[in-house]
Design a protein around this nucleic acid. Sequence first.
DNA 1: TATCTGACGATAG
DNA 2: CCTATCGCCAGAT
Length: 96
Amino acid sequence: MDPHDRSSWTDFEREVASVLDQLKPGDLVTYGEVAAEAGHPGAARAVGSVLRRSGGNFCWWRVVSADGRLVPGHEAEQTRRLRAEGVDVKDGRIRG
DNA sequence: TATCTGACGATAG
DNA sequence: CCTATCGCCAGAT
């Protein structure tokens, strides 16, 4: 998947991208919300797959699990990015 | 067409 | 609070 040529992406990837593109610094969404906003309610797991394979083409750090958990294996980086946007993160989780 | 996979989500214990 | 399951979806093989 080439970040400079979205036309080569799948419809699902484009839809997910359009949703994430609207997020502003400090915004937080869950995989399920992204899926629903993209027009694919229930496809939360598929959203995670897209983000995992997309390797940073999206603002993945603003996406958290439904229970507020950060991305497994990327807690440090995600915590750093979120705090830089004013989000309160505590022990790999969103406080609030 | 059949199966397997996973950065999910809800539920039960 | 934790783990174990199960249902779900789109992609990859």
